[in-house]
């Protein structure tokens, strides 16, 4: 019973969405449920936040090694949350000064903005920028011209890497008109518009088929592991 009803819900909901797509009266249902989902996901943040607090409070109270870092996480979380939800230090919107809560939570100069600008943003961007290092080490370690496939991959990568900087024109700019088409930038554009397009198009079609098939299996109840065991 605890499994049958959810299965039925999924099936009905899914097929209704499919049918609705063809009926003008209901075609906007898709947009509505996307908004619903966002609301639901926002409510689910409570679940995530609660879980985060639980995990780190447990680590702290158990005094597992490194519990000090859990304290830092909890403190950072609570401070950011209180400042943000409380709109602390935020001025009202200039247009509606009599509404104290009308300002933007991320107003420039507010504490929330400060934490975003000087803590969140540099951390996010720096972790992202670590990719430059990893890409270098992967290049040295993993990209081996073992077989023809790998050679194709590497050759394309070389052409793009060089063709998309000043090195491309410098290396190939002197080519005579007869083989002009082999100049790095022209070659880049040819590779991109022909080979890359063909490959991506096929991958996209495959993904569309895979998505449709997985969706269908779930709606038909063939695939139901996401629903758990039916036990409590």
């Amino acid at each position: 019973m605890k499994r049958q009803i959810p299965l039925l819900i999924a099936m009905i909901a899914g097929f209704v969405m499919i049918v609705a797509y063809f009926i003008p009266y209901t075609v906007s249902w898709g947009d509505t449920v996307i908004v619903w989902f966002d609301v639901l996901a926002a409510i689910a943040f409570v679940l995530g936040g609660g879980n985060l607090l639980k995990v780190h409070l447990k680590k702290t109270s158990d005094q597992v090694p490194g519990w000090g870092y859990s304290v830092i996480t909890i403190v950072a979380f609570v401070i950011m949350l209180v400042i943000g939800l409380g709109k602390i230090g935020v001025n009202p919107a200039a247009k509606y000064p009599e509404f104290a809560w009308s300002g933007k939570f991320s107003e420039m100069g507010s504490p929330f903005w400060w934490l975003y600008e000087y803590v969140f943003k540099p951390l996010q961007a720096t972790i992202f920028s670590m990719l430059a290092f990893y890409v270098a080490s992967a290049a040295f370690r993993a990209f081996r011209a073992k077989n023809i496939e790998a050679i194709l991959l590497l050759a394309t990568a070389f052409i793009i890497l060089l063709g998309r900087t000043a090195a491309g024109p410098a290396l190939t700019g002197w080519f005579p008109d007869a083989i002009e088409g082999l100049e790095a930038d022209k070659l880049t554009s040819y590779l991109m518009t022909v080979f890359n397009t063909a490959g991506n198009r096929a991958i996209m079609i495959g993904i569309a088929l895979g998505t449709a098939s997985v969706s269908l299996k779930i709606l038909l109840g063939v695939e139901r592991s996401y629903l758990g065991s039916g036990e409590e």
Partner: peptide
């Protein structure tokens, strides 16, 4: 930014080449 870009791209190509030579 294209300055660092050029040097880093050349470095990437070199790294792949050296990696393959070793291999």
């Amino acid at each position: 930014r294209m300055g660092p870009q050029l040097v880093a791209h050349v470095l990437m190509v070199l790294l792949i080449v050296v990696g393959n030579l070793i291999f």
